[in-house]
């Protein structure tokens, strides 16, 4: 069984600022990183490899320099890395992106049956959380989002049981393969690449697939295939703080309320 993990190279948004005049992201000189959620997706794929011996392929759509991101995936232990890169893929929204990624997964499926596709919950630059579900819909895979634990996987029966982290509650879901998972940060702690693997990955080749390979209709991909346009990016007005509980009368209760609030907003992990 092949496990496919989709990863995106993103600007390190902790260092990105918004140009107040043009309302666009100032990207000059900002280092690129693996989208943090995708790093968890990658780790989960590698854990499946460790446990079941599956092969893992990493997919990324992006400019040629996204090769660096895929090399990091190779250094961590993926078996195959494919960069989907072509000028005609550029300017894509989530719809067009999921079209290209689905087609690539379909090509991989023709070589070896794909059982599981794993994506990060969302990217930290686009923040839509749409590409994973888009791929699942297009491929007709079961779609399990916001996974924080793979409870059980039975490759023989072709079934998977996962826990989904929803607001204020968990949901246990069992589903048939093939499946697409999107994972949250709590799912695991990503490993570090070893020095020898990192040195090896520098010399390894990342396959590059252009639309020559995928043969997609150009009207459905890239800028042409993207019905969504971002009209403006801006920093939100900072909301006023709120007072939680009554710290003077009931400090313990107020502390509990605060912790609950932080947990429900994903600001604190317990």
């Amino acid at each position: 069984m092949l496990v496919v993990v989709c990863i995106k190279q993103v600007p390190d948004t902790t260092q990105v600022q918004i140009d107040p005049v043009t309302n666009t992201l100032v990207r000059e000189g900002i280092p690129f990183i693996v989208n943090p959620y995708d790093a968890h997706a990658l780790e989960e794929a590698l854990r499946l490899k460790d446990r079941f011996g599956f092969r893992v392929a990493a997919l990324s759509m992006g400019p040629p320099n996204a090769e660096a991101t895929l090399k990091k995936a190779l250094a961590l232990g993926v078996d195959e890395a494919i960069l989907l890169s072509d000028r005609v893929f550029g300017g894509a929204d989530t719809l067009a992106t999921s079209r290209v990624l689905s087609e690539a997964i379909e090509r991989l499926n023709q070589q070896e049956q794909v059982g599981i596709v794993i994506c990060g919950k969302q990217t930290i630059d686009g923040d839509t959380a749409q590409v994973g579900p888009g791929i699942a819909t297009r491929l007709g895979y079961t779609q399990l989002t916001l996974v924080d634990l793979i409870e059980k996987l039975d490759p023989q029966q072709g079934r998977i049981t996962v826990r989904r982290k929803l607001e204020g509650r968990h949901e246990i879901v069992e589903a048939p393969l093939p499946v697409l998972l999107t994972v949250v940060r709590e799912v695991n702690r990503p490993r570090y690449p070893t020095v020898p693997m990192r040195l090896e990955s520098e010399a390894a080749t990342v396959q590059v697939w252009s639309n020559q390979e995928l043969q997609l209709d150009q009207n459905g991909i890239g800028l042409k295939g993207s019905p969504t346009w971002v009209s403006r990016i801006f920093s939100p007005q900072r909301e006023k703080g709120e007072i939680v509980g009554d710290g003077a009368a009931d400090p313990t209760g107020a502390a509990h309320l605060l912790i609950d609030r932080l947990v429900s907003r994903d600001l604190l992990v317990v």
């Binding site: 690449p193 070893t194 020095v195 020898p196 693997m197 040195l199």
Partner: peptide
């Protein structure tokens, strides 16, 4: 050690990283 930092200048045949 598992990441390869204990034998950075050691040959691979002895488990080093040859870095």
């Amino acid at each position: 050690a598992e990441l390869g930092f204990m034998g950075l200048n050691v040959q691979g045949e002895y488990g080093g990283s040859e870095a």
